[in-house]
Amino acid sequence: MPTVADLSQGQRGIIKSFSEDMLPVKLMELGCLPGNSIELIQIAPLNDPLYINLSGSHIAIRRSLAQLIELEIVDDSQTL
């Protein structure tokens, strides 16, 4: 299953699941819950960290953490 790390710049996905004990509670507090959307805004030079829009929260996380969040990629290229 694709993860947040597989998104390309500007692409969006809906969170499916993640391993609960690996993910920090903080990330959940910011809205990282199944069903919410994540958009990849920018990838830093050297491909890490990732700058994402997590259902309205703009945050940067490292690739290693992004790989733990599984999602379903939404193709909304036509709406944008």
Binding site: P24, K26, L27, L30, P49, H58, I59, S64
Partner: peptide, 8 residues
Amino acid sequence: SLFMVEMP
């Protein structure tokens, strides 16, 4: 290793 920054 946790890393999370808010981008206000």
